[in-house]
């Protein structure tokens, strides 16, 4: 097992390198960050000076090599705009994004597991049909639009929840309240998707022999559903969960913008808009790392849940 993990970790290196190369080239075909930052009132000589200082006039491969050389030592460079360290900037934003995505993930699971199981146990029931319509509703709405409408209803009209911003960590009262609307915006669409997936997996499992055997043995239905059917139908859900991690982070980009959320997603959007290469580079790299590690974690858990799978 450990050898497997180690091998997987090693194989991540080229992936991460590739990500950095792609983002690096992308950012360097776009506009001049210095002019964008300085605005129209600064003379061109000053812009040129600053560009030279930042090494932006060097050939792109030289720039990449320089960046890479520092990056392997854990130094992701400094922001062109703020002159602050990229690692520091990311560090300050990670918590907000993680707390938001984790709550969103919880919402997803808390809704989709019971809903999916009940739908499967009683297929074509009123509940099943309702959950289907419900699911299609959430998957079909653009999530920034949902966010705006949540703000309008729960923030402006009803005044139940804070409109925007992160008013503290997840475990504080104010903080928790401010997490609710963005987490719903982020977590409801995948919840809809997962419900359907769990339902179809459960349906498949329920018809399998060992469940019939269990039934034959006269075990109570709840035990069968929870212990046997659910456990086995959750494995593909986990795979999907791993595959969906990037999706959740992608959604966070939009959600954070709507809710003025101080997370990685907005840092990335802002930096893309301002052509702050080192920050975009660092942030995407960090996200990619999170994604591949999440996938690895899922694979490892997969092995743990399903003893039939062996790795070497």
């Amino acid at each position: 097992m450990w050898r497997y993990i180690f091998k997987r970790l090693v194989s991540l290196i080229p992936t991460v390198l590739g990500v950095s190369l792609i983002v690096f080239s992308l950012m360097h075909i776009s506009g001049d960050p210095v002019r964008l930052m300085y605005g129209p009132n600064v003379a061109q000589e000053k812009v040129d000076e600053r560009r030279a200082e930042l090494g932006l006039d060097d050939p792109i491969l030289v720039q990449y090599a320089r960046w890479l050389f520092r990056a392997v030592q854990g130094d992701l460079g400094k922001s062109i705009r703020t002159n602050d360290r990229v690692t520091t900037m990311i560090g300050q934003r990670v918590e907000a994004t993680l707390s938001l995505t984790i709550l969103a993930l919880l919402i997803t699971l808390v809704i989709s597991i019971p809903a999916g199981v009940i739908s499967a146990v009683k297929p074509y029931s009123v509940f099943d049909n309702a959950s289907r319509v419900f699911a299609l509703f959430w998957v079909s709405a653009p999530n920034f639009w949902l966010g705006l409408i949540f703000i309008l209803i729960f923030g402006v009209q009803l005044g139940w929840l804070p409109i925007s911003g992160r008013h503290g960590p997840l475990w504080s009262v104010d903080g928790f309240l401010s997490h609710i609307l963005p987490a719903l915006t982020l977590g409801l669409p995948p919840a809809a998707l997962f419900t359907r997936l769990i339902r179809s997996n459960m349906l498949e499992v329920i018809h399998e022999d060992y469940i019939r055997t269990a039934r034959g043995k006269g075990l109570p239905e709840t035990v069968i559903v929870v212990k046997h059917a659910m456990r086995n139908s959750l494995i593909p859900v986990m795979t999907l969960l791993g595959l969906r991690m990037p999706w959740l982070f992608g959604g966070a980009v939009v959600t954070e913008t709507v809710f003025a959320w101080p997370g990685m997603g907005r840092l990335m959007v802002d930096s893309i808009m301002k052509r702050d290469y080192p920050v975009v580079q660092g942030a995407v790299l960090f996200l990619a790392l999170l994604v591949v590690l999440a996938n690895l974690l899922v694979d490892v858990m997969y092995a743990w849940v399903d003893p039939r799978i062996k790795y070497d």
Partner: peptide, 18 residues
């Protein structure tokens, strides 16, 4: 100074928020 780059959110905050 709260940073709210999304204009509609800023307007909503002014009308009934913080």
């Amino acid at each position: 100074f709260r940073i709210i780059p999304e204009p509609s959110t800023l307007v909503a905050e002014l009308m009934s928020g913080e």
